[in-house]
Simulated assay, not measured.
Amino acid sequence: MPETRRVICWRHGQTAWNTEKRFQGQTDIPLNDTGMAQARSAAALLARLRPDAIIASDLRRAADTADCLAARTGLTVEHDKGLRERYGGSWEGLTTAEIHERWPEENARMAIPDGEDLQAVGERVQEAIVRGLASVPENGLLVVASHGAALRAGINRMLGLPPELRQALGPLGNCSWSLLGPLRIGGWRLLEHNAASLPEERILSDDR
């Protein structure tokens, strides 16, 4: 039976380390006041889409973002460690400038010497999304609250993009989301990316 469900990949709200341009990785940094406000505002919009299930990383910044949507919808958030951010090893806590100065070549390739491989991140995020979809009915909607690099890697994996094209998909802003829908021939397609508002009316072209 062809896939009919949709997936929203939602990045967490702002943290202090985001504003300081520090690599967060799996360090458990909470949302700041701006991040909480972002999460509440985005949740009010996403609730209008009537999601059927919410899954989230167990790191606080994503879990608290998801809780804002749960409060709006009455749904229970299921936490999955597979949705955690990419492990950053010795880069965690360092600023972008510090990483560039110490590891210029590795930084250009986003190859963390003692960190997690991006392909592995994409695989585990995709697996977590598949687990979450098990509780979503036909034509239903799953919301996935996670992290920027992890979601980008997961989306790339679900779309079947090769590693050399990973940067074809731009980054997600704090509390922005991407929408994935099914392809008629199987697999997934990207319907929206880095969105922060809902379209007033979805009008598709003849080339659907």
Score class of each variant (00 low, 15 high):
R86E: 07
Q167S: 12
L179D: 09
G93I: 07
E105M: 06
G132Q: 08
G88A: 15
R102N: 10
R166F: 08
A128N: 08
T65C: 11
A145Y: 00
I185Y: 04
I112G: 06
E123C: 04
S178E: 08
L165R: 15
H100A: 15
V136D: 03
V130Y: 04
N156Y: 02
E105A: 15
E92P: 01
A168I: 03
P182Y: 10
L172W: 03
R84H: 05
N139V: 05
R72T: 05
G82Q: 09
R109F: 03
C68G: 04
A66R: 03
W177N: 09
H100C: 11
N107W: 04
M158W: 03
T96N: 12
K81T: 10
V130D: 14
K81G: 11
P163V: 10
G89D: 03
E123H: 10
I129S: 11
E101W: 00
G148T: 08
S176C: 15
A149W: 01
R131A: 15
S57I: 00
R124S: 09
P171K: 06
Q119F: 03
S178T: 08
G82C: 09
R109H: 12
D67Q: 15
V125P: 03
E116S: 12
L183V: 07
E106N: 13
G181C: 07
A168V: 09
R102I: 10
G88S: 12
G82V: 10
A168S: 14
G74Y: 01
L161V: 11
W91P: 06
N139Q: 14
P137N: 07
P171C: 13
D80I: 10
L133P: 06
M158S: 09
H147Q: 12
C175Q: 09
Q167Y: 09
E106Y: 04
R61P: 04
I112N: 07
L179H: 07
R157Y: 02
D67I: 03
H79N: 06
A145K: 00
A70E: 10
E85D: 14
D80N: 15
A120G: 12
L83H: 01
G181H: 01
R72Y: 02
R157K: 13
E101N: 10
L169P: 04
A66W: 04
S176A: 11
C68E: 15
S146M: 02
R152S: 12
M110E: 14
L151V: 09
R157P: 00
